[in-house]
Each structure stands twice: as structure tokens, then as C-alpha cells.
Simulated scan of single mutants.
Amino acid sequence: MKIRAHPFGNLVPPVATAVALMVAGSALAPLIDAAGKKMVASYAVFQIVWIRYAVHAFTTGTLTAVGRQGVEALKPTKVQLLRGAAQFGSTLFFMAALRTLSLTSALVIVFLAPLIVVIVRSALGLAGADRRSVLIAALGALGVLFAYAPQLTSFQPIGGLCAIVAAILLALYFLVTGHVAATSGSIVNSFHTAWPGAVLGAPFALISFANPTAPDWLILIGMGLTSALSHFLVSAAMRTPFSSSIAPAAYVEVPAGAFYAALLFGHYPTPSEIIGGVMVVVAGMCIALHLGRGKSPGP
């Protein structure tokens, strides 16, 4: 497979461009979640998520159709349907979790997803999940327990369960993404991430639809546009030859989420949440670095 040259030529080192794309895309993701948390107080979860993915799919589908790849690139496959459905389901459960959990708490739980992937691959005897990776994944799971053990008496079980289901579905999305990430352009991949949610969520969203106010329409449409941009940036980063080495940069989403939570909702993480979150981030980064050894090109 031929990898496209990065868009800034010789002005910026290719690996720096890849890292910047990954960081930018990952930092945008919790901004969408923060907007969603604001919206769940007024609208049904299905409506919020459906509008997000409908705008996302329309934007990227239009760009694909009028671009070089044309309408033919919009033709779906079963793998892309499974991938998009998993992403849609993960977002639904994550938004449901945000009804009762803080943004930081929900993100820490959901970011168990990459660790779940390692455990599943190990259980199935697949490549890329040796004993060291499984032990590191266990450290990440302990981080979540450490973060919330002091809060068990007040912890919202429904919100926590929704976040765990979101993490499991996100792990499925990651597993399937490994088969399709490098086979299409970044905008095409972004479209195929969104259209299943736009289609599957439509009937449920219309049943519970409440007409948003003008400011809320701007927020909801902005969520969809930001979703399209975030997925495009991450997909572009993962299509470079440095995808294995830059994967840890995705964990910028956790501190970015904590920043948005503090800025927009006045929620500051507790010491146990900080330590547990650090354990999850470190575990994920260690796994990505460990599995990425020998897979990225040399200087």
C-alpha cells in the first residue's frame, strides 16, 4: 500500500506532522463530549447523537462525492457498517453516562477501551498481545478502581455501567478499525465512521425529537462538524508510516477532557481521580509504545 506524503512537504518533519494531527484530533474529541453533556440536560440522547452523526456523515459524504474519489467511495461494506455501528453505540452509551457522571470520570472509564482490546486479543490468541501487554492492561484497570474506590458509596452505578458498555463498544470499534484504517482516504474513513449512526439512529431520534432552540442548533451542528474534523485528523495521522509510534498521543484526550470539565462545568478531578487517570493513561501509552517497537520506520 502506498502512503501519501504528509501535507507540509519538507517544512515540518513527517513524524511531527503525524503527532500534531493525532494530538489535534484527540483534543477536539472531548470538546464534543463537553457540548454533549450540556445538551443531555435538555434533549434525548438519541436525538443528540443522531444529529451529530447526521451532520458528520453529510459533511464528509459531500466532500467525498465532489472530490477525486467520487460517489463510488461512499459504497459501504459490512466491515464499515460494523465499525460505524460500534462507534455509534459507544457514543450513545457515553452520552447516557454523562447524565450522571462528570466528563472526566466518564473519559477515564471509557479509555479502558484500548486495554480491553489487548485483553481480548490475548484471550483469542491473536498477535499483538503478549504477557507484558496484558499485565500493563491490568494496571490500567486497577487505575480505574483506584480512581473510584473512595466514591463507591456515592458513585452512580447506571452511569458507570453505561461508561463500561461504551468502553467495550469502543474496543470493538478499535479492533475493526485495524482492518480498514489504511484502505481508504481520511475523509472517506470519517464518512464511514458516521453514516451507520446517521441511518440507525434516525427512527429513534425522530420518535423522541424536540425542536432545539437556535443556540442549541448551533451547538448540535457544531458537534457534528467537530466530529468530522476530529475523525479526519486522527485518520490522517494513523495513515502515516508512524501510526504505531504516535498512538500514545491519543491519550491527550483525558487531560483535555479534564480541562474542558473544569472550564465549562467547574468540575475539578479529585486526587484519586487524578492518580487513577494517570495510571490509565500511562498503561495505554506503555502498551502502544511496547507494541509499536519495530513497526515504525527508522529515521
Rank of each mutant, 00 (worst) to 15 (best):
Q69A: 13
R4W: 03
A113H: 04
G61S: 05
A237H: 01
A123P: 02
S227W: 00
K38W: 15
A182F: 10
G292A: 03
F265E: 06
T226V: 06
P271H: 06
L218S: 13
S235C: 07
V165P: 11
A129K: 04
V282F: 06
L233H: 02
A236N: 03
D130F: 11
V234G: 04
M22H: 03
K75I: 11
F265C: 07
Q151M: 15
R121P: 08
G276N: 06
A149M: 13
A202H: 03
G25P: 06
N10W: 09
F174P: 11
L101P: 09
L101S: 04
I109Q: 10
A247V: 12
V281W: 03
G298K: 14
P30D: 01
S184Q: 14
S26W: 00
V12R: 06
L145E: 07
A35N: 05
P215N: 02
V180L: 04
L107W: 07
R4F: 05
G294H: 09
G128S: 09
H267A: 14
A198I: 00
S245M: 13
P271M: 09
A256C: 01
L200N: 05
A5P: 08
G257H: 01
S243M: 08
V15D: 15
A249N: 09
A34M: 03
R99E: 15
A86K: 02
F88K: 00
I119V: 15
I51Q: 01
G128E: 08
Q87H: 15
R99F: 14
T193Q: 09
L98P: 03
L264I: 14
S186C: 02
V23Q: 02
V71A: 15
T240H: 05
V117L: 08
G257V: 02
L98T: 03
A29E: 04
L21R: 07
S230K: 01
L31G: 11
M279E: 04
G266S: 15
F111E: 02
I164A: 12
D216N: 14
V282Y: 07
I275G: 10
S244T: 07
L169I: 01
M22E: 11
P203Y: 12
V15A: 13
L124F: 09
S122Y: 15
L263F: 10
L112W: 07
G257R: 00
L161V: 15
A29Y: 14
G140W: 10
N189A: 14
G201I: 00
G70C: 13
